[in-house]
Design a protein around this nucleic acid. Structure first.
Lengths: 323, 323
DNA sequence: ACGGTTCCCGGGAACGTTTGCGAGCATCCT
DNA sequence: AGGATGCTCGCAAACGTTCCCGGGAACCGT
């Protein structure tokens, strides 16, 4: 049915080897022969069969991306950026989510791993030794997870947190609340606490909870009764829940309470009021992770750890404290 | 490096054919032999090589999904549902977006089509004859696009629109605005106009514009000066823009103006106030499209057109008109 | 007891591509 | 002029799997 290399060879009057070389190593074939082959290929509409190619060469020319939940608005821009990057380099990307269940993650990884040259594992729930043996089998890059010896891109929130503390301090806040989610690097709430206290702000922590909208709704009432004037939420979605419930309770934002999110998803700029948040650049993250994976595949800079920064994006959900 | 069928055969003391049959047609091999093979395979950690399998069989066991923009919050749930459905049937899904540019779409389709058994094309921008010849080459299912002879799932908004009109009528509204986007089935604003007028509501149309947040922001000022008390937006994102700008102008929602979106994305229930919207069930849509594609691949119900309904989800952005 | 089925299993070709090896030929150097 | 070198290209093997075909064994019937 489909047109193969053999038909192109026949049409161009050369052997299959030469046709193959015409595409994979054009400098090894004479210019005029090359032209004849190219013409024939174009006319017949030939495109190489990826299955045959990867069977022979052991390479699939595609990359895997395993994420916890596609529906989380943080991830679509990641996928988009990774696809854009990968396509430019001739790669296809195979994305799959795990629904944050370990059994699904194992199954998904097994299915994906056979069809790609390497994969990015986002916030994997797998045990450390499992990840280590997986990484021994094939190129793997971790995000939001640390296992010694495995290349990783690490999201550093210190800059963003510090800027958030300064921002609140400048507005005259002194009593703050942190609504904790389950994210590994945040569960060490003490680093956040330290950062805030270094700026002379008190910080009490609620949670950890699930990082969902309803969590924010629930946490909002705790916030009002705590007497705090500012709240930092685990992510934008939780912050939006806080915003939503505060409005329902008649608490003015930012008049009575200031709210800060994390991630800077689409939600942040489209909410009412728009949400001050700590931006993690999805583009940079995805690009770095992709490049790191490609390097690992090519056995260039293996085992590297690259760091991604963050910064505060002030919008309308924060303001001066009212006395 | 990887363990092949040959090693399993040797370990189990049988031929490669038998190992192959043990996995693809277990009833054709004796129970005790089957057990021996399974044990050997498990111990060696054998998993079939998809490249070899698809080279030989001509099937890739994966499906393509081509969408305009992953970052549009309407699509992630679609991808998720399609993946869930496909996985249950042993398929992998390859998703890619086109950034709504026709050149990218062609390139993307070319890249994806060689690696899948069939694909779902969402709101394709390709010319009708191009689509027709593509569909002649391989199984294709269209969504949000109609080409005679190509299987399609069609989103019908009539129920939702009609319910929205009733809803507004019951709240005492009479003058409405429709902020039009570019979506094909909506660009025929007259069907919406007719539906509204059938309920005794006047409707003026603004646009068409791009279906973006800023469009809503821009349209909001037009709405206030038009004297209308209700606005139907092209989608949730546009509705959110309207909501945002209205709040900034000091116009109360739903006190002064009621707002209705379309799609029922995550944005709708997390906004403040939460958004009344016309729900299109992503799960149903994705499931139906996937099943239709699978049917087309199997040359069962080809050329079918399946219809997906819609319905109004009343939330807090609509209310009685204030006199 | 013997031809005919049925059931299991092994041999081997085929899927479309890449690639090492070597043949043929022209070019260049001494 | 003759051998060495370099360029272009063809031959054939190999990648891991599926599946057609045929052989042998066991079992049924008469």
């Amino acid at each position: 049915m489909a047109v193969t290399i053999r038909q192109v060879a026949q049409a161009a009057g050369v052997s299959v080897s030469t046709v193959s070389r015409a595409f994979t190593a054009p400098d090894q074939v004479q210019p005029q022969t090359l032209r004849r082959i190219r013409d024939a290929a174009a006319q017949l509409g030939y495109t190489p069969n990826p299955a045959a190619r990867s069977l022979r060469g052991g390479k699939t020319e595609s990359l895997g991306l395993i994420i916890p939940d596609i529906a989380n608005p943080f991830f679509p821009p990641i996928m988009k950026a990774m696809q854009a990057r990968a396509r430019r380099l001739g790669y296809t990307v195979l994305a799959a989510d795990t629904d944050e269940r370990e059994s699904d993650e194992l199954e998904t990884i097994a299915a994906v791993s056979k069809r790609v040259d390497g994969m990015i594992l986002w916030a994997s729930t797998l045990a450390e030794d499992r990840l280590a043996e997986l990484a021994a089998t094939m190129p793997v890059v971790l995000v939001n997870r640390h296992v010694p010896g495995i290349p990783e891109v690490h999201i550093s929130l210190t800059a963003g947190i510090s800027q958030a503390a300064e921002h609140l301090k400048a507005y005259g806040h002194s009593r703050c609340v942190f609504v904790n989610g389950s994210r590994p690097e945040l569960s060490r709430g003490k680093s956040i606490k330290e950062a805030f206290e270094a700026h002379g702000l008190s910080l009490v922590e609620f949670g950890p909870y699930e990082p969902r909208f309803e969590t924010g709704v629930h946490a909002a009432t705790l916030v009002t009764s705590s007497g705090a004037t500012a709240v930092l939420a685990h992510n934008d979605l939780v912050a939006l829940g806080v915003l939503h419930q505060l409005a329902k309770l008649g608490v003015s934002v930012p008049g009575d309470v200031s709210v800060i999110g994390i991630d800077d998803t689409l939600l942040a700029e489209t909410s009412t009021p728009s949400l001050t948040t700590i931006r993690i650049s999805a583009e940079e993250l995805a690009t770095q992770a992709t490049d790191l994976l490609l390097d690992t595949i090519a056995e260039r800079g293996g085992g590297r750890v690259v760091e991604i920064g963050s910064r505060l994006i002030p919008r309308s959900s924060t303001g001066p404290v009212r006395h």
